[in-house]
Amino acid sequence: MSVQATSVTPAQAPEAGSRNGSLARHRNALSGYAFLAPFLLFYGVFLLYPFALGLWMSLHDWEIVGDFREYIGFLNYVELWDDPYFWEALKRTLQFAAMTAPAATLLGLVLALALQKPLRIYAALRAVFFASNIFSVTVVTLVWAMVLNPDRGLIANGLRAVGLAPIAFLADKDWAMPALMVTSLWWTAGLPMALFLAGLQQIPPEVYEAARLDKASRWAVLRHITLPALARTTLLVVVLQTVMHLQVFGQPLLMTRGGPANSTRPLVQLIYETSFRDWRSGYASAISTVLFVLMFGVALLQFRLSRQEGE
């Protein structure tokens, strides 16, 4: 019995290797898509689909109750242009974000610089300052409504102790917005502090040691070493805080109801009232689209400026 040997020509060997490599790449690609499938499904169902539906609703006269749906094109956006309530809410939202986001960034940086030492007392203080960040907006507004109460509040009792008349912060048109800003700063300063602490830990200690040997002052170290090293962290904090404060809603809704005289009524509250009080979901979707474009534009501008500075 003889066994016939099978020979492979030199031209066939590379072809077989190429097929095997192609099959391996396809298997790897399929494995990668299978790994990403749960996230892509979640992203599509809970983010992309609602976003697309919101854009589609903004082109309709769409009532939240009932089956009335009428395509009207861009008439909702034309109406926005002539709506004084929209422009007033947009002005209040921009004012709130423009004052609160930089203040939260600066406060987070100051807290991080003050509490970065590795002692237990500083670790406890870091936990205390970050703890407010995990509270719900209901708890935060309840606490600050009691603090700002003109009859029995902490600030009112302090003013009476020094012979001054208490101030009704949440009922005064000039004080209501600053009161909401202070409340938001107290609530949100923990996250910027944590991000800055993470950024400070990435700075090599040898750099500070060299500065001490050169007898550099604290201001010089902060200006020429710490702040430049925290540039990217600062950008991240500013973007996150700006986008977050452009979406302010719970604080004015629960503390002032948008008053007095609509002086604290932001865009998100206008969206809520237009959709769930006036049943005009199409018009509310148009306002939401404008708010999204505003947030996207702010983030894109800040990242672009950072890239230009880096170049």
Rank of each mutant, 00 (worst) to 15 (best):
V139A: 15
G21C: 00
Q201T: 09
R126M: 05
T256E: 09
V139Q: 10
L119V: 00
L230G: 04
Q116P: 01
E79G: 11
L106G: 11
V182C: 06
A13H: 03
L200M: 03
A284I: 01
K215A: 15
L109K: 01
G297W: 01
L47P: 04
L246V: 01
A104D: 06
E209L: 10
W219S: 02
H60A: 04
R69Y: 11
Q302H: 06
R277E: 11
T105I: 00
F96P: 08
G108Q: 03
A171R: 12
T93F: 03
A13P: 02
P150D: 10
G73V: 08
L40G: 00
A161Y: 13
A286E: 04
L109I: 05
N262Q: 13
K173S: 14
M57Q: 15
E15A: 14
R25L: 13
R27A: 06
M146Q: 14
P102V: 04
K91C: 06
L47S: 15
A5Q: 11
S136W: 07
F196D: 05
L227Q: 06
G66T: 11
Q12H: 03
G310D: 13
A123K: 14
H60R: 15
N28L: 05
R152N: 15
F130S: 13
G66L: 15
V45N: 09
V293C: 13
L180M: 09
P178R: 07
L267S: 02
R277F: 09
T138N: 15
Q116D: 06
L222R: 05
T233C: 12
L185N: 08
D278H: 12
G54P: 10
G258Y: 10
E15K: 10
L305E: 10
L40F: 06
A284D: 07
F292D: 01
G21L: 07
L119Q: 01
L197A: 04
